[in-house]
Computed example of a mutant assay.
Amino acid sequence: MALAQVAGLAVRSWGTPAPDGPVVLALHGLTSTSAVWADLAGRLDVPVVAPDLPGRGFSVAAAAGPGLAGLAREVVRSVDELGLRHVVVVGHSMGAFLAPLVVEGLGGRVVGTVLLDGGVAPEPSMLLKPLVVRGAFGVQTRRLVRDFPDADAYTAVAEGKAAANRPDLQPGFRAWAEAVLRPSAQGFRPNLDARRLVADAVDSLTRAPHLGLLVAAGAPVHLVAAAHGADDTKPAFLSGNAIAAGNRVVPHLTWERVEANHATMLFDPAAAAAVRELLSS
Score class of each variant (00 low, 15 high):
Asp80Gln: 12
Leu181Thr: 11
Glu104Tyr: 00
Pro124Lys: 04
Phe58Gly: 06
Gly160Leu: 13
Glu256Gly: 12
Val250Pro: 10
Thr33Gln: 08
Val87Glu: 07
Arg189Asp: 07
Pro54Thr: 00
Ala64Gln: 00
Val48Met: 01
Trp37Ser: 04
Arg56Phe: 05
Arg134Gln: 14
Ala270Arg: 11
Ala270Gln: 08
Arg189Val: 15
Leu68Thr: 01
Pro66Thr: 03
Ser125Val: 12
Ser78Thr: 12
Val89Gln: 02
Ala121Trp: 00
Val132Asp: 04
Pro66Asp: 03
Gln140Ala: 15
Leu27Asn: 04
Val11Gly: 09
Asp168Phe: 09
Ala18Trp: 03
Gly246Arg: 04
Pro124Trp: 03
Thr233Val: 12
Ala201Arg: 02
Glu74Gln: 15
Met265Arg: 09
Pro122Trp: 05
Gly57Pro: 07
Pro22Ala: 11
Ala162Gly: 10
Asp52Cys: 10
Met1Asp: 11
Pro51Glu: 05
Leu40Trp: 01
Val145Gln: 07
Ala273Tyr: 01
Gln140Thr: 07
Val89Tyr: 01
Ser184Glu: 07
Pro220Cys: 13
Pro54Lys: 01
Ala64Pro: 01
Val198His: 01
Ala274Cys: 10
His252Glu: 15
Ala163Ser: 14
Ala72Phe: 00
Ala272Tyr: 00
Pro190Gly: 07
Asp117His: 11
Val224Tyr: 05
Ala219Ser: 13
Ala226Met: 04
Asp203Gly: 01
Ala4Lys: 07
Leu144Gly: 08
Ala199Tyr: 00
Val103Cys: 14
Met265Ala: 13
Thr33Phe: 01
Leu144Cys: 07
Arg56Gly: 03
Trp255Ile: 02
Pro269Thr: 09
Pro100Arg: 05
Met94Tyr: 02
Val215Lys: 06
Val90Leu: 03
Leu278Met: 11
Ala35Asp: 10
Ala208Thr: 12
Glu123Asn: 14
Pro251Glu: 14
